[in-house]
């Protein structure tokens, strides 16, 4: 199967004035289309940095990164915005929904930035919200929902643009076990329908759901 992600000798150095911190020290790997991968490692291991680079929120200091065959490392910020918009769906530990927008508008956000008309946006948001079981909560504000429901809104937002990869950063970190399991089940279902899913976590129970584990310690992939 073709690689959706491929990276080679990625290094990331944070320059903090006098000190510079090497968060990634030359990592290489690839992820195939349709894979369900868990990136695990203790805190400070560099897994978040890797996730930011894979999510095009940040760029590597050296090394190369290909997403769907395109070299990302040298791209300008606006181009990265477009890639995040079209090819990547994020799910965060803290949900990161906009509190003053209702559920539907939150889900529509990526569609708005890709220039899709209001009518079409509405239909697309409605569909994915039905898919995650929140069709009846479209006009609620995030504050009116439970943690599990909020994370489902975030998942709906992540998949609404039909991205190449779904990147989840500790998606169950702020949830109780039961809601966490619900969320993980959604990811499993999405994976079954062909979505590529990358979950960053330090929780072995979460990692068990994945087909493959990438373990990072001290800025290096050890497994």
């Amino acid at each position: 199967m073709e690689n959706v992600i491929r990276f080679e000798n990625i290094e990331k150095i944070y320059d903090m004035g006098k000190v510079s911190v090497q968060a990634l020290r030359g990592v290489s790997s690839d992820i195939k289309k349709g894979e369900f991968v868990a990136v695990i490692g203790p805190s400070g291991s560099g897994k978040s940095t890797l996730m930011h680079i894979m999510g095009c929120l940040d760029t590597a200091t050296t090394g190369s990164y290909w997403l769907e065959g395109k070299e990302i490392s040298k791209m300008k910020k606006n181009r990265l915005s477009q890639i995040r918009n079209k090819q990547i769906g994020f799910v965060f530990q803290t949900f990161n929904l906009l509190p003053h927008l209702n559920v539907r508008r939150n889900v529509e956000l990526p569609l708005m930035y890709s220039g899709i008309s209001a009518g079409k946006r509405y239909k697309m948001a409605e569909k994915v919200l039905n898919d995650v079981g929140l069709g009846d909560r479209m006009n609620h504000k995030p504050s009116e929902l439970s943690g599990g429901q909020r994370q489902r809104v975030a998942i709906a937002r992540a998949i609404v643009n039909n991205p190449a990869i779904i990147l989840a950063d500790e998606p169950t970190g702020n949830l109780d076990t039961s809601s966490g399991n619900d969320i993980l089940s959604i990811f499993s279902q999405l994976n079954l329908t062909g979505n590529t899913i990358i979950i960053v976590t330090h929780d072995p129970a979460v990692a068990q759901r994945a087909d493959r584990i990438i373990r990072i310690v001290d800025g290096l992939i050890v497994e």
Partner: peptide, 16 residues
């Protein structure tokens, strides 16, 4: 700030 971060993450360009 956080909201801006979210908007950037889902694809807002700096100009937006």
């Amino acid at each position: 700030t956080r909201e801006i971060g979210i908007r950037l993450a889902v694809g807002a360009r700096r100009f937006d």
